[in-house]
């Protein structure tokens, strides 16, 4: 009967503030010395307050841990060490740079291919033009030779040198002795003049129409280029 009504704390559970309040100490036996009752009560109240505070803190910490756990499992915006944040930024910037490099390389390859095609196109046009020019010259030559031939045949009868048509010899044209200009020589020169006149006429006509066609081509090209480009801003 002398034992105090001490809180019974079974294994696994903890002392509660309520149990502290309910503690009652038996009075000391008469003649024996005991603690001051008020002091004991005061101390017990102090311990109780402390216990309440500790328990409150503990439960708020548990809540915080739960909150962080949930956040982590949801993958929400975590708090990152500055070091990691820096690497993250470096990684993102590197990726952006790689994308930019890719675009630049693509654009460069595209212009390179475009320019290359244009160059091939130009060469084809030039080859074609050279072929045409050759054709024009040959045509002019042929027709001039024919005309000269005809002129000789329709003129007064005279022996025509076998090699005369089509083989103008310019070097000999200005040099005959003025004293006696043989009839044959005069005829040859006339024939040559007729040849050259016709040759240049035919050639000029051909060339003019060809150049006009080319100019039209260039105009069309310019027009289509202008309409495909946005208006260029004026440079200062």
């Amino acid at each position: 009967m002398n034992s105090p009504n001490l809180p019974v704390v079974p294994d696994g559970s903890r002392l509660t503030p309520g149990e502290l309040q309910a503690v009652v100490f038996a009075r000391a036996a008469l003649g024996r010395r005991g603690y001051d009752e008020d002091e004991v009560r005061g101390f017990l109240q102090y311990v109780e307050r402390e216990l309440v505070q500790i328990l409150n803190e503990r439960s708020s910490l548990a809540e915080e841990v739960d909150r962080l756990r949930t956040q982590l499992s949801k993958g929400g915006p975590g708090v990152m060490a500055p070091e990691d944040a820096h690497f993250q930024a470096v990684r993102i910037l590197s990726q952006a740079q790689q994308t930019a490099d890719l675009y630049v390389a693509d654009a460069e390859r595209y212009t390179r291919e475009l320019a290359h095609e244009a160059r091939l196109h130009r060469e084809a046009i030039l080859t074609d033009a050279k072929g045409r020019a050759e054709h024009l010259l040959e045509d002019a030559h042929r027709r001039a030779a024919e005309v000269a031939d005809a002129a000789v045949r329709s003129g007064p009868p005279a022996p025509v040198p076998a090699d005369a048509p089509g083989t103008p010899v310019l070097a000999g044209a200005g040099a005959p002795a003025p004293s006696r200009l043989p009839e044959e020589e005069r005829r040859r020169m006339e024939q040559e003049i007729t040849y050259l006149r016709t040759y240049s006429d035919v050639y000029r006509t051909h060339l003019r129409s060809y150049l006009e066609a080319l100019l039209r081509n260039v105009d069309e090209w310019e027009d289509s280029e202008r309409s495909s480009l946005p208006p260029a801003p004026r440079r200062p």
Binding site: H86, A89, V90, R91, L93, S94, Q97, Q98
Partner: peptide, 10 residues
Amino acid sequence: AMFFYADLFV
């Protein structure tokens, strides 16, 4: 070099 420039610009 990629890392170097990204680090420099960050």
